[in-house]
């Protein structure tokens, strides 16, 4: 995406402004900037092999709904909310969701010559367990944790992404964290 170098000084807000006026090159800058995080969000929310389709659908929808993007919210969380919505639509249209992606996608081995203590065998085992238990949570509990803490969306943005009231996001987050903690403790893992 290096060919867009000349445009990289354009801020998201400026690009959104221009795109609203029909400037497709400006929108393409946003597409280039946010395809990777959007794809990652789709995969983490269980879109599996359909992640690329979800991302494309979300990018097209986002352009058509740009007028609804309020001044104070950024393009990234707004786009990720649309991605989350699209992923949920996908789940409605098929029986099984790819929640397994998390487990399978956890890195199996440390980087060969990493001196990082976060890369120790113990830390890796802990992460594996965390992913495993995250995967076993009910879909709606996992979704809220993925949105809030892995994708770093605010409560408000998570509410929009999951199509539930903000209060529900709050209570569901607390409940999902408690369940996750309980599962980790039951397995005999010392608390972090």
């Amino acid at each position: 995406m290096s060919r867009l170098d000349e445009a990289t000084e354009l801020t998201d807000a400026a690009a959104v402004d221009r795109a609203r006026g029909g400037d497709l090159a400006a929108y393409e800058l946003l597409v280039a900037r946010y395809t990777v995080p959007a794809h990652r969000a789709a995969v983490l929310l269980g879109a599996g092999d359909d992640a690329d389709d979800v991302v494309q659908e979300a990018l097209v929808k986002a352009y058509r709904q740009l007028s609804r993007l309020r001044g104070e919210s950024g393009f990234r969380p707004w786009l990720l909310a649309i991605v989350a919505n699209e992923t949920r639509n996908l789940h409605r249209s098929r029986r099984r969701r790819d929640g397994l992606v998390l487990r399978a996608a956890a890195r199996p081995d440390p980087e060969p010559d990493s001196p990082d203590p976060a890369d120790s065998v113990l830390a890796r085992e802990r992460r594996h367990r965390l992913v495993e238990h995250l995967r076993r949570l009910a879909d709606r509990d996992r979704e809220v944790l993925v949105c809030r803490f892995l994708l770093d969306l605010s409560e408000h943005e998570t509410a929009a992404a999951l199509g539930v009231p903000k209060g529900t996001v709050k209570s569901r987050t607390a409940r999902a964290l408690a369940k996750l903690r309980e599962h980790l403790l039951v397995e005999g893992v010392p608390g972090a």
């Binding site: 959007a38 996608a105 892995l150 770093d152």
Partner: peptide, 14 residues
């Protein structure tokens, strides 16, 4: 944990 999860390469959507 986020940084430790590996996801497939996305397609270029431009």
């Amino acid at each position: 944990l986020e940084a430790w999860l590996v996801t497939p390469e996305p397609a270029d959507q431009r």
